[in-house]
């Protein structure tokens, strides 16, 4: 078996074995690791491949969560349809947000996403008849093939399967014509456009795909949480996503997974710091950009190059 496949196999085996011996809270934490890791994948595509930045991913996350909750509770459709609906709604809005900022270079998209997330949060808060507004919205537990999953133990495996599916899609996307074009655009927009790669089309695809992933994650999160309120989807959430993706590593699926672990476990580890916690996250983010721009996953490559081996991912 080639080493890359062996590594993936081992990682999946470890992930599958993790919940054993843990309690209900442990299941919940592991489930949120998977949910965050999906957002990590989405930022992988947007920032790592596309070179675009979003500080409004909580907006897409919220759209996915509310869309799924509404589809499941108001229309009575099954859980998986709700999750898909969450992804599609978020994806459509992703394309819409990218649309106006296409004609200019620079950081306009980032600013637009910041405003967008705020707009979504406000909209969900004000539109009471549909979203429950201030009171929030109750979401049923996830159910598969007619049976409701009461424990997060079973749900974790569903999430793991969906994460692996999305990771596989992201991996193939990176190797596809579209993915490679996107990376060419990131390195030099002018050079890539001269080679006949249309920038607008690819930026929209990157944004829509990324928003779709985030929407799916949001929908799954809604069913894990059981109750939605707009406060969950604040700017702080967007910034946590961004720092998680950067600290995990923006250029690989493994990085997204490490980011998920970081975001879910850091509050547990840093709990005793109370108010200073968020300051520590900020400092970690800055240190990471300065000293480890490849994220935690690049430690593997650093070690391998010390040993005189090629970095993972090169044939």
């Amino acid at each position: 078996m080639p080493p890359r496949k062996l590594v993936i196999f081992l990682v999946v085996a470890v992930l599958a074995a993790l919940p054993f011996g843990l309690g209900n809270y442990g299941y919940y934490i592991l489930a949120s690791v998977m949910i965050y890791a999906m957002v990590g994948l989405s930022l992988n595509i947007l920032i790592g491949m596309g070179g675009q930045i979003s500080i409004g991913h909580a907006g897409f996350w919220a759209l996915g969560a509310y869309a799924s909750a509404i589809v499941v509770t108001k229309a009575g459709l099954p859980f998986l349809v709700g999750v898909l609906a969450g992804g599609v709604v978020a994806g459509l809005f992703g394309a819409l947000v990218a649309l106006p900022a296409l004609r200019v270079q620079g950081h306009y998209l980032a600013i637009a996403t910041l405003g967008f997330a705020l707009f979504v949060q406000q909209m969900l808060f004000e539109w009471e008849s549909f979203t429950g507004g201030r009171q929030g919205l109750f979401v049923p537990r996830p159910s598969l093939f007619g049976t409701e999953m009461q424990s997060d133990f079973g749900y974790y495996y569903v999430l793991l399967a969906i994460f692996l599916l999305l990771a596989w899609i992201a991996h193939n996307f990176a190797k596809s014509h579209t993915g490679r074009s996107l990376m060419a655009l990131r390195m030099s927009a002018v050079a890539a456009e001269c080679c006949g790669i249309p920038r607008p089309k690819h930026v929209i695809i990157a944004f829509a795909t990324s928003a779709f992933f985030t929407g799916v994650s949001g929908a799954l999160f809604a069913h894990l949480l059981g109750h939605l309120s707009t406060e969950t989807f604040s700017l702080a959430a967007s910034l946590s996503f961004l720092s998680m993706a950067v600290i995990g590593g923006l250029h690989s699926r493994g990085g997204a997974l490490l980011g998920g672990f970081y975001l879910a476990l850091a509050p547990e580890v840093l709990r005793e710091f109370k108010d200073a916690q968020m300051v520590i996250y900020g400092v970690l983010l800055i240190l990471c950009v300065q000293f480890l721009p490849g994220g935690l996953i690049s430690i593997v490559d650093v070690v391998r190059s010390r040993l005189g081996r090629k970095p993972l991912g090169t044939p």
């Binding site: 980032a110 961004l242 800055i286 950009v289």
Partner: peptide, 10 residues
Amino acid sequence: LIATIGLWMV
């Protein structure tokens, strides 16, 4: 840009 977002948090 990412570093300024870290600064925002700090």
